[in-house]
Design a protein around this nucleic acid. Sequence first.
DNA 1: TAAAAATGTACAAGCGCTGTCAATACGAAA
DNA 2: TTTCGTATTGACAGCGCTTGTACATTTTTA
Lengths: 337, 337
Amino acid sequence: MPARIEDVAAHAGVSTKTVSRVLNGHTSVRAKLRARIEASIRALNYVPNPAARGLAGNRSYLVALLYDNPTANSSYIMELIVGVLQACKGTPYNAVLHPFEAGDDLAARIDGFVATHRPDALVLVPPHANNAKLLQRLDELDIRYSTISSKLRQAHIDIGFDERKAAADIVEHLISLGHRRIAHVAGLQGHGARTWRLNGYRDALRKAGIEYDESLVVEGDFTFESGLAAGGELLKRRRPPTAIFAANDDMACGVIREAYQRGLAIPNNLSVCGFDDTPVSQLISPGLTTVRQPCREIACLAAESVLQSIRDPAMRLHARVPYQLQMRASTTAFKKP
Amino acid sequence: MPARIEDVAAHAGVSTKTVSRVLNGHTSVRAKLRARIEASIRALNYVPNPAARGLAGNRSYLVALLYDNPTANSSYIMELIVGVLQACKGTPYNAVLHPFEAGDDLAARIDGFVATHRPDALVLVPPHANNAKLLQRLDELDIRYSTISSKLRQAHIDIGFDERKAAADIVEHLISLGHRRIAHVAGLQGHGARTWRLNGYRDALRKAGIEYDESLVVEGDFTFESGLAAGGELLKRRRPPTAIFAANDDMACGVIREAYQRGLAIPNNLSVCGFDDTPVSQLISPGLTTVRQPCREIACLAAESVLQSIRDPAMRLHARVPYQLQMRASTTAFKKP
DNA sequence: TAAAAATGTACAAGCGCTGTCAATACGAAA
DNA sequence: TTTCGTATTGACAGCGCTTGTACATTTTTA
């Protein structure tokens, strides 16, 4: 039978309330007494019972990660989870996952989820992070949340990285290799990532004095299949691009598949780069030049901050964390055919 | 303020105890009364408070997934998570994740985890599923657990699939394509997967009357890098194999990278197949022939069963779920050079 | 038809913790 | 030294549910 707070109190010769204060980091406990209580806690190997704590304090000690499609982005979500778990480490909080299919009634469905699991805080991933109605409903329910890479300004806490700048950087890299006809496979409408990455692409062209050619931007939806289709459309042209910047790695893989099927060698006949640095980008041959998206750091910061905001509801944070270009072998200097 | 059990009891005109019986699936409630109570529950939108339930019933309503390295196998773990979540759906249970680095003191460290989070059930993934000391400690602590693909017979519940047969099938496929010099990149020592897949490889050779050549089996550890090294060792030979069966997809990617660097075309100069059907196997070009490991189904069954075993501690289940070969373009008929 | 079994009620006692509020200790000002 | 205000500590009542006891009522079985 594990020790209870009562046992600790008896051992330290204080009231249970004082032990509770120490446990919850309240300030008004004299240092000496606090030390004595902490010693008792260690001596008895005491760990508070989360259920009892939750019941008495009307808290669940749960942070929920709300995401959309578990299958499509598994490595992305997994990285986020790792980040959230890291933030929970050493706290009484637990992370729970909640896949939540997008849909009109989402703002309504959230009520059921909240009623059942009563999470103390939520971390929202796009596209949910971009769902204004959902955020509003959460505000009404008075649930703390943070968003990841939201295109809205609505959330009190949002963590992301400068995707526009990162996209510009990687396109500049292609330009520095001598490429001029650079195509872009754009992401799914409605995601911030689509717009930021597309804008970054345009920024880099503008900066290099290359005229923007609308026909070199083809639509995608972040899936392999859409990358394949986009690649087909681009490579069948009389004057195909010499480099393609796909808005994520999966689509870059689609482009590469199309090139492969046409007998084009990467990178000699075509430079390709992606975005995100998912595991596939180092497993594929040649390795894919891409932008390392700092998911883990983002998720960790998002979770830490939202936990902090439970104590300090006035908290606001809109942070961008650093990213990195990941140079691999799928891009090379432009050679005249 | 959400409804309480008391409100439901009043609404249905019964005692709270009877509502509690319905909630917890006790048998001795007449069907008619049960229906009335269930109607009241719906009418009031009642959801039991997990903390109160947990405190009174000494349960946490948490199933923990214990795995080793979150980074290496992200897609595998993610699939498992999806399976566990599926099993929790519609139950009051929540899934929590717990990355737990392997190490000698694991059986001891588990105590801390259990004390802090008090999960009602655990699902163990290799290598933890193969840690006899750990399982023993869990038995001592009287915690229900199930294992996934354990090589031990120790667990009361273990779910997996017939890896040996699957490996034999895929090697038979290579043989049917005319290959005779088929190499194998073996997995990490200590994992059941290593032995099963290696044995399956040998089974297929034996069945086809091909003599087992020890020099065609090279060591790997399930990582890309080890596959790359193994590929190097195999392909530098005077008489290299015409097909390589890697014990997982990451190593197959390593082999493919090595082939790529040597200017060998897949599949025309070398057929390669993997195992697991991780996302990379369809993203890579050409697509990788592999075995679809039914992770999701396995994890779902493992979680469902272990939850069931909370009620019925005598429960035993050792199940193998069906798998499938996933044919893609990385394997083709042997052609004389 | 009577006895046995199955269902149901009322009530009370917690589960282990935290919130409220009152009590006490302490230090500085008078 | 006394006094007052603030910093610290404690007593106690729940949080919302499950469970046990003791007993009443209904249904089933013999």
